[in-house]
Design a protein around this nucleic acid. Structure first.
Lengths: 228, 228
DNA sequence: GCTCTAACTTGAACATGTTCAAATTAAATG
DNA sequence: CATTTAATTTGAACATGTTCAAGTTAGAGC
């Protein structure tokens, strides 16, 4: 059940070659059409060997996610060091998510369901996904903190986590998007990022103070029980 | 692939007995632990016979949902004819959802993932789920329209659909909720329903007019491409 | 170089969702 | 009642994720 970390050169090679085969096949054929036997076959190892390094097919998906996250982080590095406007940073970051994931669009649907499953070890709120989740949330922390926007402290505290959630929402929309070039998703991104920045600015309006406090308090309360 | 409607007394009986066995076993053992062979066995029919009436195990889940929806609708009927306050109607309705679903809490997790899968015929945004989805949205229409709240027309138009989405969000929270008596979910319901009503009232504040129009326009735009 | 142990590898076996061609049943038709 | 036809039922067969006991390999300790 526990993931066996390779303790040998040979083991490392095996793990790497299995993972690479899995990534290739997922991308080529999609999640469902990629059998564990095919992965093992392409990797040149036996079926049982794959299970030595990856306790289940789902665990290979987690690596898949890590892979796309690294692509994404690399893609937005220039933007984050150049752009200071919050809306620009946010829009660029989220656009880069769907652009990075575009080659995996056909895969994404079936993967999403395994990930949304609360009883799956991979679900985004669970323990196994924590390291990756923390990385993504930290990335949004950088998006927020590197901007010249002046954001109230109580909002700034929760914002990265909420943007991570927002990103998942966009991805879910993107999965369904059949428009050419995924234009509809890009439109929605432009509109929502603008809106988010606008709402943050509005949060200081006196009449909204009360609701703002309540919303933030509630989110904090909710988050503590789940993503901790 | 297409669902075979029974055309005989005998066929109707078979379908009913299979469905009943499935509902029982799902509730007793959960989705994953209930095998198609067990369902067939308990129903006293052969494995192949089950597939004659239900193209897949997932299709049995849809019937499970319909079942809980009917329980829910019956449970809130008295409330809807008595209570006129929007917050009260909303709170009571959503509370009734989680209370109705409580016996299925252990099942719900694994079911959720099959339903969230965009490639599944059962995903809430898809065609197969439309009849049931329409019923639920209509129910929220009744929650809204039967209240004495004065709601701007543009909001009233979208509100039932958004409340349906809100209900799904609550259910997703509820699935994770391990607190005794599922108290945390009930708390969140109380807070969020209040908040929703408050935000609807705030939507008329002049400074929010612009954002309100944009948000509603965007939601309308999004919804048209998916839940149509 | 030999031995021993832990790491690694293997493939058969199992469980379960799904398919399908053949057998059976029931009802309509004459 | 006999025949025909469509509906229904069946269980074997298949694909695939997963497990596991047994075999193989490589490196540490001497």
């Amino acid at each position: 059940m526990a993931i066996a970390q390779p303790k040998t050169k040979r083991g490392e090679t095996s793990r790497a070659v299995i993972l690479q085969a899995a990534l290739d096949l997922f991308q080529q054929r999609g999640y469902d059409a990629t059998t564990m036997r095919a992965i093992a076959g392409h990797a040149g190892v036996s079926l049982g060997s794959s299970y030595h390094y990856f306790p289940s097919k789902e665990h290979l998906v987690l690596e898949f996610y890590r892979h796309t996250h690294e692509l994404h982080a690399a893609a937005i590095a220039p933007l984050l060091s150049r752009e200071k406007d919050l809306a620009g940073r946010l829009r660029g970051t989220i656009r880069a998510v769907v652009i990075t994931c575009e080659p995996f669009h056909t895969v994404a649907g079936s993967i999403f369901s395994t990930v949304a499953n609360p009883s799956s070890p991979l679900n985004p709120f669970g323990a196994a996904a924590k390291p990756l989740r923390d990385e993504v949330v930290a990335l949004y922390g950088e998006v927020v903190n590197g901007s010249d926007a002046r954001i109230p402290a109580d909002i700034a505290e929760m914002l990265p986590l909420m943007l991570w959630l927002y990103q998942m929402g966009i991805l879910y929309f993107w999965i369904f998007d059949r428009s050419p070039g995924r234009l509809r998703t890009l439109e929605v991104i432009d509109e929502t990022t603008d809106l988010i920045v606008r709402l943050i600015a509005l949060a200081n309006v006196p009449i909204l103070r009360g609701s703002r406090k309540r919303i933030l308090g509630m989110i904090k309360n909710i988050v503590e029980g789940r993503v901790s």
